[in-house]
C-alpha cells in the first residue's frame, strides 16, 4: 500500500513545475562547479606530475562537487518536504488517506520514499556526470561509490526530518523554515564543539558526511544516519497517531 502513496506523491510532484525547476537549478549549479573544478585540475596538472603520489581528479573534482551537492540538497529539502503533510492537513485531504484502509506507516513511508526518488534522480545525474571522467583517465570508483552512498544517507536524513516537521503543523512555510533552521544547525554544530564537549561533533551531519566524502565508509557514521532517519520517521508516525487519539 506504500506504493499507492508513493505513486500519488510522485504524480503530484512532477505535474507541478516545482520539481522540474529544482532539478534544472541543481543540475546547472553542479555541472558549473564540476566544469570549474575540471578547469582547475587541467591547470595544475603539470605541477601535480612533479609530486610523488599526486592527487587524481577524483580528489580534485569529485570530492568538492559532492560536498557542494550535499549543501544544495540541504537547501532544497525544505521546499520539497514542507508540503508533504502540512499541505494535506491544510487542504483537509489527510482525512481521505486516514479513512482509507492504509496504516499510518504506509502514508509516512510512501511520502518519504517519494522525496527519496527525487533525490535519487539528482544523485543518478550527478554520478553519471562524474563517471564521464572515466573516459579521460582512471577514476577511483571506490571514492565515487562512498560519495554516492554518503549523499543518499544525508538526503534521507534531511527528508526524514523535513517530513517530521511537516507533520507538526498545517502551515507549509513554518515546516520549511523549521526544517531549514534545524538542518543548518545540525550541519554546523561541530563548530561549537570544543575540547570539553566533543560529543557535539558526533551530532553534526556534516562531520558524518565528510567521512563518506573522503572515501571512508565508517560504521559509526552509517549507524548514525540510520538511527537519525528511523527516529524521525517513527516520530512522524507517532505524531499522526497521537493526533488521531486526541482529536
Amino acid at each position: 500500500m506504500t506504493g499507492i502513496i508513493l505513486k500519488k506523491e510522485l504524480h503530484m510532484l512532477f505535474v507541478s513545475p516545482l520539481a522540474w525547476i529544482l532539478l534544472t537549478i541543481i543540475q546547472v549549479i553542479l555541472t558549473w562547479t564540476f566544469l570549474g573544478r575540471l578547469d582547475v585540475f587541467l591547470e595544475i596538472q603539470p605541477q601535480l606530475l612533479q609530486i610523488a603520489n599526486p592527487p587524481g581528479f577524483t580528489e580534485i573534482v569529485i570530492t568538492p562537487v559532492f560536498a557542494l551537492a550535499a549543501i544544495v540538497l540541504l537547501m532544497i529539502t525544505p521546499l520539497l518536504s514542507m508540503r508533504l503533510l502540512a499541505e494535506e492537513r491544510r487542504n483537509h485531504t489527510l482525512t481521505l488517506l486516514i479513512s482509507a484502509p492504509l496504516s499510518l506507516a504506509d502514508i509516512v513511508l510512501g511520502k518519504f520514499f517519494s522525496v527519496m526518488v527525487f533525490f535519487g534522480m539528482v544523485i543518478v545525474l550527478l554520478s553519471t556526470l562524474s563517471a564521464t571522467l572515466a573516459l579521460g583517465g582512471t577514476l577511483d570508483w571506490g571514492v565515487l561509490f562512498s560519495n554516492v552512498l554518503g549523499l543518499l544517507f544525508v538526503a534521507a536524513s534531511f527528508s526524514a526530518l523535513g517530513l517530521y516537521l511537516s507533520s507538526l503543523t498545517s502551515q507549509p512555510v513554518i515546516a520549511a523554515l523549521g526544517t531549514m533552521g534545524i538542518l543548518l544547525a545540525l550541519w554546523v554544530i561541530d563548530l561549537a564543539a570544543g575540547n570539553t564537549n566533543a560529543w557535539l561533533r558526533d551530532l553534526s551531519l556534516l562531520r558524518h558526511f565528510e567521512r563518506f566524502n573522503q572515501g571512508v565508509i565508517d560504521t559509526f557514521s552509517v549507524v548514525y544516519f540510520i538511527l537519525f532517519i528511523a527516529t524521525f520517521l517513527i516520530l512522524t508516525i507517532r505524531h499522526l497517531d497521537a493526533e488521531r487519539l486526541h482529536g
Binding site: 503530484m12 505535474v15 507541478s16 487542504n91 483537509h92 485531504t93 489527510l94 482525512t95 481521505l96 479513512s99
Partner: peptide, 11 residues
Amino acid sequence: YLPEIPPLYQN
C-alpha cells in the same frame, strides 16, 4: 466517508 470539508486534491 465524506467529511464536512470534502478532501479534494485541487490540482
